[in-house]
Design a protein around this nucleic acid. Structure first.
Lengths: 162, 162
DNA sequence: TGAAACTTTCAAAACATTCTGAACGTACTT
DNA sequence: AAGTACGTTCAGAATGTTTTGAAAGTTTCA
């Protein structure tokens, strides 16, 4: 696969960015490659562009599939597996996040059941936690619904402090 | 620090839950302890309850402070440092997440500048990515604002598929 | 059926992270 | 000033994760 120098640099930056999110650099580079590819990507493409072993390419490609980032594609007259990022990947990733938010709600509930009834500060904290994540889950749901409905007008750019 | 058996079990579950979110088990246990404590927690408490070295207790306690989970507390006549989880921790954690969402927007923008102008599929994908995370950032901001304003009515429970 | 073209699996190696004990620094107390 | 109580740092140990090469598995096709 032909990629210009800037594009290769972008792939590396993606690797680093994903590393910061606690994913692996290789996985992140693959994500970058999938973003910029102008056609479905084969395992050999991954090996060639990312300079990793075929084993690693295979493992990470399957991971992408698992988390809903890619779909498998086949090409007539070709036996290889191809992977492609389809529209809607981002919302699928976010939807998966929802379940971790629900887990926080559940955890808080378990805490409330475990602590002594006279431990007021813990009760208060755990209630805040439960309310917060419950609220967050609700809002995330909302957001996904709106996005899927196409209510996605681009927000006016503004400077935000980090 | 006295903790009943259930509460100790809760701390362990918190450790495991945080591990699933790519944090360390020790950090997660500390989070659990801070949630259920009925008074500010000292390093010695951490050592005693979590059975970790003082070094690890110190490192992880400082990490909690860094990410805005705890505040330092001092007690008259006591030289030790105490840590306590204050209200608003959860929103601080989420606010920190916002910056990673912004990074995704920036990354997508960089991609758009890097790929060949005739690579339409990449352009489309990267635009979707930029729009999505931009939208997400906007909605997260909204959510935080509403939460802080107290618009946090508990949502009716409903069953959601994992 | 057998060879060719692929992908997956697996044990070991490379690498990265986290924890520990010990040493050190600092600030109180007597 | 010396002793004590505390927190931090650091090198090395323990542990966990990812990648690799090699071998095995699968599918296609002649």
């Amino acid at each position: 696969m032909q990629l210009n120098q800037e594009t290769r640099a972008f792939i590396e930056r993606t690797g680093l960015a994903m590393e910061r999110l606690n994913l692996t650099r290789t996985f992140g580079r693959l994500f970058g490659l999938l973003l910029v590819a102008d056609r479905p990507v084969s395992l050999d493409d991954v090996v060639q562009v990312l300079r990793v072993s075929k084993a690693s390419a295979s493992t990470n490609a399957r991971l992408c599939e698992q988390v809903g980032l890619t779909h498998q594609v086949s090409i007539p007259g070709d036996r290889r597996d191809y992977y492609e990022m389809l529209p809607g990947s981002f919302e699928r990733v976010l939807a998966a996040r929802l379940s971790t938010v629900h887990e926080m709600v559940r955890l808080a509930q378990e805490g409330l059941e475990a602590v002594d009834p006279d431990n007021v500060s813990a009760q208060t904290r755990l209630e805040e936690m439960r309310e917060f994540y419950d609220f967050a889950a609700y809002k995330m749901n909302d957001m996904l619904t709106q996005w899927k409905r196409g209510e996605r007008r681009r927000q006016p750019r503004k400077v935000l402090k980090e």
